[in-house]
Amino acid sequence: MVAKATTTPVKIEDHRHEKMKELAKKNNRTIQNEYAEAVDRHLAGKYQEMILADSKLEQIFTNKLNRVADRLAAMLSTNNMDTSTVLMGLMHLNSKEFEKDRNEMYQAYRKEAAAYEQAKRNKK
Rank of each mutant, 00 (worst) to 15 (best):
Arg29Gly: 01
Gly45Tyr: 04
Ala24Phe: 00
Lys96Pro: 02
Lys19Cys: 03
Ala24Pro: 02
Arg102Tyr: 07
Ala114Trp: 02
Ala53Glu: 13
Leu90Asn: 01
Ala5Phe: 01
Tyr106Leu: 15
Val2Pro: 01
Leu76His: 07
Ala5Tyr: 04
Ala74Val: 00
Ala73Asp: 11
Lys21Trp: 03
Tyr116Leu: 11
Asn80Gln: 07
Ala69Asp: 07
Thr7Ser: 12
Thr6Glu: 14
Ala3Arg: 15
Leu43Val: 15
Asn94Phe: 08
Ile31Lys: 13
Thr7Val: 14
Ala115Phe: 03
Pro9Leu: 15
Asn94Glu: 04
Met75Asn: 09
Val68Arg: 05
Lys4Ala: 06
Arg16Ala: 10
Phe61Glu: 15
Met81Gln: 06
Met50Pro: 02
Ala5Leu: 03
Ser55Phe: 06
Glu22Trp: 04
Lys21Glu: 04
Lys111Ile: 03
Ala53Phe: 09
Gln118Tyr: 05
Tyr35Ser: 05
Glu117Gly: 14
Ala69Thr: 08
Ala36Tyr: 00
Arg110His: 07
His92Pro: 01
Asn33Lys: 08
Ala69Ser: 10
Ser55Pro: 01
Thr30Tyr: 02
Asp54Gln: 15
Ala115Arg: 14
Arg102Met: 11
Ala74Gln: 08
Asp82Cys: 05
Ile51Asn: 13
Asn66Val: 02
Glu18Met: 08
Lys64Tyr: 00
Gln48Val: 05
Arg41Met: 09
Thr83Lys: 04
Val86Asn: 00
Glu58Asn: 06
Met91Trp: 09
Glu34Pro: 03
Asn122Ala: 14
Glu34Asn: 09
Gly89Val: 01
Ala108Tyr: 07
Ser84Gly: 02
Glu13Tyr: 06
Arg67Trp: 09
Glu112Trp: 08
Ala38Trp: 06
Leu72Trp: 01
Met81Asn: 04
Asn28Ser: 13
Asn94Gly: 11
Ala73Ile: 04
Gly89Thr: 03
His42Val: 07
Ala69Val: 04
Gln32Val: 00
Thr83Ile: 05
Asn28Lys: 15
Glu58Tyr: 05
Asn103Val: 10
Lys96Ile: 01
Leu57Pro: 04
Ala38Pro: 02
Tyr106Ala: 14
Asn103Lys: 14
Ala36Trp: 02
Lys100Phe: 01
Lys120Cys: 06
Thr6Tyr: 11
Glu58Lys: 07
Ala44Lys: 14
Ala3Tyr: 02
Met1Gln: 10
Glu104Gly: 05
Thr30His: 09
Tyr35Ala: 10
Leu87Ser: 03
Gln118Ser: 11
Pro9Met: 12
Lys120Leu: 09
Asp14Thr: 12
Ser55Glu: 12
Lys124Gln: 09
Gln59Asn: 08
Leu57Tyr: 12
Tyr116Trp: 10
Ile51Met: 13
Leu87Ile: 08
Ile12Thr: 14
Phe98Ser: 15
Arg71Asp: 10
Asn122Ile: 03
Phe98Tyr: 12
Glu99Cys: 05
Met20Val: 10
Thr30Gln: 09
His17Trp: 04
Thr83Gly: 01
Tyr109Met: 13
Arg102Gln: 05
Ile51Trp: 04
Ala108Leu: 12
Ala114Glu: 13
Leu90Lys: 00
Thr85Asp: 03
